[in-house]
Design a protein around this nucleic acid. Structure first.
Lengths: 249, 249
DNA sequence: GGTCCCCAGTTGTCTAGACAACTGGGGTGT
DNA sequence: ACACCCCAGTTGTCTAGACAACTGGGGACC
């Protein structure tokens, strides 16, 4: 805390600089679960920012789920096993890196098909039947263990030469962001429970009929335009979802 | 909007009164998905509150997932199918009522057992082996359809005469809150995919081996004390989880 | 010993402003 | 026709303060 000096001329907001610094202290264990974070007053005085800015830094930690506040007492670091599956949109790559695993993908197929051949995707992406979608089918692997099968659909119009440039070792999200300026900021996800079919069982190395998660995700850029539709099947024996629910402000 | 006059002497915060009013307009359809909400400036002027207060009302709608903001453009009502499984801690009863179904429960068993007989629960609730837990096993029903089997464990010390007073037609959460002053404000939930065993299959009226969700939830009161440990099995064919992921502030 | 009260510390709410950054549209100039 | 600029409207960030509400502890009083 004392070591941090803010860059007041940076484009990065002050509250965000403070939030990141506290987050680092939490991640490295310098601030332990159950312990008090510096109070709004203290942050405000020490870093010479207004109390509202200090407060915004602390509140943003609360909305990430890594802290919680109590009136009259203070703001505490929450008990967290793993900081995963919190509210942010994350690619498989980011998710696995956050869990400390090495992510990896095996492409099964990649092709361009008319939207009418992928009806659900076409509808979710608001495409006309004759428009074309890029469809990439991948097995997602974490540390050599196959975790899931994923089919991603993107409108061809948005990234026409994606398949030429796409490097399966890289994160698709990272590429969309860096090459095409497509920044996914929101996603709706539906999770269902199901059983592995023959093909999925073969690809994942589990018996047919094993329990699996079925994810359906539609991703949006700022402005609400849908840019990605993903259906995936993940192993029920190796994958779990954790979620922290809270009283919403 | 014009009709709302704020009660400035109420204990209910102004921003919350505004939030509730906007929420109602959204729910009744007066404000439709995709349409603009009144801007911070407009709310501020019309209701004579400071811009920060108006802003807090709009931000709280965003953190509920029912709206999203875009710099330079405004705050929009989000496309939502159902306002379910958003970030709030909800009991089954509240969840079903929000979905428009009539919730109902059938108690299979209710008893007091030593914590060592419920090892996971004892650990999650930080109990000594000799302390006792109240264990209630219920089938959860929505509109006559059995949806899941749920086992709830609570420390006996917290609500010793619960079993005498408990009315299965009522929400357990509501009762904990009203009778014992136990207000659950946070919960950690783990979701796994599994298969129905023989007993679950019978209770739920599905074939053995059907896909199910396995939920494990630990609930906390303000202060971080764990007060409830729940394991439940829900039908995969009738239940799905929806989640909106977003860029966290 | 116990009860009550007060006080310092903390978060919650609210005000009244300021400037920055971005959007979208209209007008001007080329 | 096109590029550019400017402007009004909007959200994002930030300041400096105020009072309310709650917590926990210590001290005064009985």
């Amino acid at each position: 805390m004392e070591l941090l000096d803010l860059d007041r001329h940076s484009v990065i907001p002050l509250y965000y600089q403070i939030q990141q610094h506290l987050l680092q202290d939490i991640r490295t264990g310098k601030l332990k679960p159950g312990k008090l974070l510096p109070s709004e007053e203290v942050i405000s005085k020490r870093l010479r920012v207004s109390r509202m800015t200090a407060r915004q830094a602390l509140k943003s930690l609360c909305s990430l789920g890594v802290a919680h506040s109590q009136r009259g007492k203070g703001t505490f670091v929450s008990e967290v096993k793993l900081e995963k599956n919190i509210r942010e949109v994350r690619s498989f790559t980011e998710e696995m890196e956050a869990r400390g695993s090495r992510p990896h993908s095996k492409v099964i197929s990649s092709e361009v098909v008319p939207a009418e051949a992928e009806a659900e995707a076409g509808e979710a992406l608001h495409l006309q039947p004759e428009e074309r979608v890029i469809r990439i089918r991948r097995v997602r692997v974490a540390d050599t263990v196959p975790m899931g099968v994923e089919t991603t659909c993107l409108p061809e119009a948005l990234c026409p030469d994606l398949l030429d440039k796409f490097d399966p070792r890289n994160s698709l999200y990272r590429m969309l962001s860096q090459v095409y300026g497509i920044h996914i900021v929101q996603a709706d996800e539906v999770v269902e429970a199901g059983l592995a079919n023959t093909e999925e069982a073969r690809l994942l190395g589990v018996p047919k009929g094993s329990p699996v998660f079925l994810f359906t995700r539609t991703s949006y850029v700022e402005g609400g335009k849908a840019v990605e539709y993903v259906k995936s099947t993940f192993r029920g024996d190796r994958y779990k979802i954790t979620n922290r629910l809270g009283a919403v402000q």
